[in-house]
Amino acid sequence: MFFFFSAIIIVCSILTVTSRKILRAATYLLFVLVSTAGLYFLLRYNFMAAIQLALYAGGIVVLIIFSILLTSHIGDRLPSPGWKKALYAGVVSAFGAVMTLVVILQTNFQATSTNIERTEVRTIGENLLNTGKYGYALPFEVISILLLAVMIGAIVLAKKQEDQSN
């Protein structure tokens, strides 16, 4: 199961950045995000997987597809990036990937093999609103303020501009 999801993730993420049709690229991105939710299910973080499906696959991809439909023509093909640019970008990212993979494969991770129980949503909620040790009340509030600011900002930005002269 892990290999199935990983194969989908790798193949579809490569297709996402190389596809010449923008709506297809968005669809491949949707496959990547859903397979990531599958990995979270495998790790038995059901709540994380639900958030991933609802927010990423449900929200962000729909937003991206809407903006694609508003800004580009469906039949259009994206221009080819040119071999020089593709070569430089490929060399940079391949170098980074190889370096990171070497470090990862050389590191000896000590897996803890305790009995893993399911994570209760109650525990998550109590931790999120707790101000004591292992409490995440402050980041939670910061994220709330951020979301409020983003809401106001998106409305202000996307609003039709008033005529500046009067």
Partner: peptide, 25 residues
């Protein structure tokens, strides 16, 4: 692999929406 494919897409693409998709990756 996913991270560096995203970096590659961010460097190669010229359309703003595809760059945003690479950032999501």
């Amino acid at each position: 692999i996913m991270f560096f494919v995203g970096i590659f897409g961010f460097l190669v693409r010229k359309n703003l929406i595809t760059m945003l998709m690479s950032t999501e990756l």
